[in-house]
């Protein structure tokens, strides 16, 4: 029963995704790869589309994955699943626990969760980087080095840094995505 699977999977993701959109990426990567819903490349494409369209990345990703697996109903149950836990928690906080963050137990839990969340995002970036530019998805894979991929990555780092220096604010992700799309057409055609 794919709808139930989608709903429960995204309910699980929504309940543990502390810290917003980007935490969803490691969580969704696990679930989508394990369930065979997406390949690594499709996942990256979906993230790119979610980044370049309006709205929270997590909601966009849930809608996208749900729709790709089971059409409009899939999109609905996945989005509902990812939103429901935070809706209930916030309702509880707004109605009864206004002082939630002042409890020391809650702060202690968060102090343990925050470093884990950052670590998961970094580790996802690392494994994706290895598989994209060196072709290493797991140990034992014969490396297929991609020079255009690596040069594009280095170039993106350089323009992002330069932009920060000159404009004093981070570069727009949509600009980076558009730029890399053009570069991709030149490099990979």
């Amino acid at each position: 029963m794919i709808l139930l699977r989608l709903f429960l999977t995204f309910l699980k993701i929504g309940s543990v995704a502390f810290g917003g959109g980007y935490v969803m990426i490691p969580l969704m990567r696990d679930e989508c790869l394990t369930n065979g819903w997406l390949t690594e490349a499709e996942l990256l494409d979906f993230i790119a589309v979610s980044e370049s369209t309006p709205g929270p990345i997590a909601v966009n990703m849930a809608t996208f994955v749900g729709s790709s697996q089971a059409g409009i109903l899939g999109a609905l149950v996945a989005t509902l699943g990812v939103v429901l836990p935070s809706f209930c928690v916030i309702l509880l906080v707004a109605a009864a626990l206004r002082q939630l963050l002042r409890y020391r137990g809650v702060r202690a839990v968060l102090s343990g969760v925050r470093p884990v969340v950052v670590a998961l995002i970094l580790s996802t970036a690392l494994t994706m980087f290895l598989s994209l530019t060196f072709g290493v998805g797991k140990i034992g894979d014969a490396p297929v080095f991609s020079l255009p991929g690596l040069s594009l990555f280095v170039f993106l780092c350089a323009i992002a840094l330069l932009w920060r220096r000159l404009r004093r604010r981070p570069i727009s992700p949509i600009f980076l995505i558009l730029f890399s799309g053009l570069a991709g057409i030149v490099l990979f055609r």
Partner: peptide
């Protein structure tokens, strides 16, 4: 081809 480039941007 464009998306092969875009994937690099997403990892970044």
């Amino acid at each position: 081809a464009a998306f092969r480039g875009i994937r690099i941007a997403v990892v970044f």
